[in-house]
Simulated scan of single mutants.
Amino acid sequence: MPDTIPDTGHDLAALLNRPGPWTTVYTDGHGARPQAEEEARRRAVTDPLRDAGAPEEDVAAVAAALDGGEGLPSPSVRILWVQHGEVALDESFVGSRLGPEHLAHGPVPPILPLLRHRTGVVPYLLVETAREGARLSLREANRGGDGETSEIEGRTDSLNKVQAGGWSHRRYQQHSQEIWEQNQAEVAEAVDRIVREQRPRFVVVAGDVRARQLLLERLATASRDLVLEVEVHTKAEGSDDAALERAVAEAVDSGLDGAIQRTRDRAAENHGAAGARGVGEVIDALQQARVDTLLLDARFVQEGDDGESLAALANEPWVARGELNDLPAESLGYVPAAEALARAAVLSGARVLVVEEELEDGEARDGRPAAEPVAALRWAEGG
C-alpha cells in the first residue's frame, strides 16, 4: 500500500506567520454528559483561559465554539486557535487526547497536538458492494461521519427468483451471472472515477463475497493497487462495523509506520549524510531549510517544559538555540524543544511525523529515554 499519510501542516504556515498573541485550546470534545455537566466543563476551559491572560473577546469565542461541536462519538478531541475574538482554527478528532489538556494565551500557538491528530486523518473510499449494486462513501479516518455518498443501483431482475432445475435453471443462473457482472462493472467504473478525481489514500472494499470478487476483477490497476478488502458484508442487515473499523485503523497505522521507516532509511543514506540527528544537527538543517521530513519521538514531545527549551523566532530561520542577545532574528520566547522544531519545520515546508508509543490502557511507560530527533534532508550538505 502506498504512503497513506498526508502533509499534516500544509495550511498552518499562514497562521503561524500571523503576529500573536493566540488563545489556544486542546481539550476533550463533547461527551454524553448532562447539560449541567457540559456547562461546568465549559467553565473549566474558559476560567483558566482568563487566568492565563486571554482577552474576554477570545474567551467568549471559545465558549461559543464549545457550545457546538456535537456529532462525534465519545471520546473525541477539540482544538481551537482564537485571535481577536475570531476562531481561526477549529478541528475535532475521534479518539482520546495524546497528551495533557492545554489552555493557554501566548505568542506561539502549540502545534504538535494538532499535527499528531491530523496524522491519523486519512481520506479513503469505502465501497460496500452487493450483487444488486453498491454504496460508495468518501470518508476520513478519525474524523467521524461520512463525506459524499452515492448509491449504484444496478439491475435486480432475476436476482431473487426461485427457479426449478434443469435447462431453465441453468439459463437463469447464466442470466443472473451476467446481471451481477454488469452491475459490478458499473460499480468499478464509479470507483475508478472517484479514485482519479478525489485521490483517496486507500479503497476499502466490503460486502457480498462474490460481488467483491467480480468488482476487483474489473477495477483499473490504479484503483486495485489501493484496495484493502474486508471480509464483512456491511450492507447486510444487522452487520457489525467493528471489523471495518479495525481494518481502517490498521491501514492508517501501517501507512504511518511505512512513512516513518522510509524517513529513517532516507536519513541513513550516504552513510548518514542525507540526514540530521539530534537537536543541534536538526536546528542547523532547519535554519538552512534543508529538512524534508522531521521525526519526533513521543517521549521527546511529552518532555514539554521539563526538557530543553529553544527560541521560537518571528522570522527565518524560525528556531535557534542560545541566549537572547545572540539570536539571528526577533524571538517570540522560549518554547519546548519539540514544539520549536516542529514549528520551524512547518514554516519551512517540511513534514512532521511523531513516533507514537503503543501502550495498553493503564500501562506505564518504561524508563527508556526519548529518542533524538531525526530529519531526512532535501539535499546533503555541499550537494
Rank of each mutant, 00 (worst) to 15 (best):
P113Y: 00
P75G: 01
A259C: 12
L112Q: 05
A312I: 05
G367S: 09
Q163F: 13
Y172S: 08
H84A: 14
P110D: 07
E70F: 11
E178P: 02
Q177G: 12
A141K: 10
T4D: 04
G166M: 01
R212V: 05
L353G: 11
L341S: 15
E197L: 03
N183G: 12
R42W: 07
N325R: 15
N142L: 00
V204K: 14
R131Y: 06
L138K: 03
V127K: 08
V94W: 08
D253L: 08
D326T: 13
S254T: 01
A311L: 06
G145I: 03
H117G: 05
D7H: 15
A61R: 11
P34F: 01
S158W: 03
V282I: 09
T4N: 08
D284G: 15
V108C: 14
P55L: 11
S168P: 03
A251N: 09
Q288W: 02
V162E: 11
A251R: 14
T24I: 04
I5W: 01
L159G: 07
T23K: 06
S254R: 09
R290H: 10
G238W: 00
G85C: 13
L219C: 11
H117Y: 04
V203G: 04
E178V: 03
A134C: 15
F93K: 15
T8Q: 05
A337F: 02
A242T: 12
G349V: 09
T293Q: 12
G99M: 04
G99D: 04
H10K: 13
A289H: 07
G207A: 06
E356Q: 15
A164D: 10
E303V: 00
Q83C: 02
E250I: 01
